[in-house]
């Protein structure tokens, strides 16, 4: 009986070596794939840098003619009339009015849905509600806009006596429903990630389901819920199509949701689609407004990420 295995390296023949004539790390296929993937990753980085660069350079030209102070504190926004006023506050106010209303609608409904799904709903119900929410998230925003103008606005007009068919309230309502799926799915995730040990501990202390939910699960998930709402706010602020259709095109420094307002995004659409000559100061306003918008949403996203990160640290 042979002691050596019959398969394997033949004892005669050329000596095997782990070194190759060409360097192993430089196999052609490997090299191509690596370059290709790196190019893909660089594209998004370059795009971001490019957009920020354009925003900054055009805005700088704008701020060469209009002072930052006037831009940020002026209460009148009439760049297309003469004499022009470049106070961005009416646009910011319009955006905040629509966004605030949207959060007032989507926050409670979304949080309620998330708590129901994670704590109370039997699996069957969850299997139904979650896909429905995904459908809601998949509806194009222009459809929301049309629904706002044709269906929601007339109802708002009749119920609250709004003068215009374009009003902040109907925009708030549709934007609220647009961001609802986002709030639900993000908060449900954080609620479900609260360790089961904590629930057991609370039940063992004689807590009812309501006690466990309101005094243990929601507080433990609070920072995650806050982050979800911040991300939803950021989405609502950046929302364009629905508010352009529903809120109107009247820069208006008001807190009355029944009036027609113009949001920052809607203004940008108006000017981009209009006949404003390229390179004029009116044209450059859209970059200044765009930069303002970008700064607001970016800081919200950064804050949200920071809050989420802190929450994760808490449990590790």
């Amino acid at each position: 009986m042979s002691v050596l295995p019959t398969t394997g390296v033949p004892t005669t023949g050329p000596q095997r070596s782990i070194t190759t004539p060409h360097s192993a790390g430089n196999r052609l296929g490997e090299r191509i794939i690596r370059r290709l993937l790196r190019t893909c990753a660089i594209v998004s980085v370059l795009t971001t840098i490019g957009i920020v660069a354009v925003l900054l350079s055009e805005s700088l030209k704008f701020f060469g003619e209009v002072s930052v102070f006037e831009f940020l504190t002026g209460a009148q926004w009439t760049p297309l009339f003469s004499p022009p006023h470049f106070g961005v506050l009416p646009l910011v106010c319009g955006t905040m009015l629509v966004t605030g209303g949207a959060i007032l609608i989507a926050g409670p409904i979304g949080l309620g849905t998330a708590i129901y799904l994670s704590e109370y709903a039997p699996p069957v119900v969850r299997e139904i509600i979650k896909p429905v929410l995904e459908v809601l998230a998949g509806i194009p925003s222009v459809v929301y806009g049309v629904v706002a103008v044709t269906t929601v606005s007339p109802i708002v007009q009749r119920l609250f006596g709004s003068e215009s068919i374009f009003n902040a309230l109907s925009a708030s309502i549709v934007v609220g429903f647009m961001i609802l799926p986002m709030i639900v799915s993000l908060s449900e995730d954080v609620l479900r990630s609260v360790p089961r040990d904590l629930r057991s501990a609370a039940y063992a202390l004689g807590a009812t389901k309501l006690d466990v939910t309101t005094r243990v699960v929601v507080p433990a998930a609070l920072s995650g819920i806050v982050a979800a709402v911040l991300l939803a706010i950021s989405r609502a602020i950046g929302e364009t199509m629905a508010v352009t259709l529903a809120a109107g095109a009247t820069p208006n420094l008001t807190l009355n949701p029944l009036e027609s307002v113009q949001t920052m995004t809607a203004y940008i659409v108006q000017v981009s689609k209009g006949d404003t000559p390229t390179g004029s100061i009116e044209y450059r306003t859209i970059f200044a407004v765009g930069l303002t918008l970008f700064c607001i949403t970016m800081s919200l996203n950064i804050i949200a990420q920071w809050v989420l990160k802190r929450m994760r640290e808490q449990y590790e």
Partner: peptide, 13 residues
């Protein structure tokens, strides 16, 4: 009838 668990599970409070 109170209970203490294998893994300590204080509330994050």
């Amino acid at each position: 009838v109170g209970m203490v668990f294998q893994k300590s599970n204080p509330f994050p409070k």
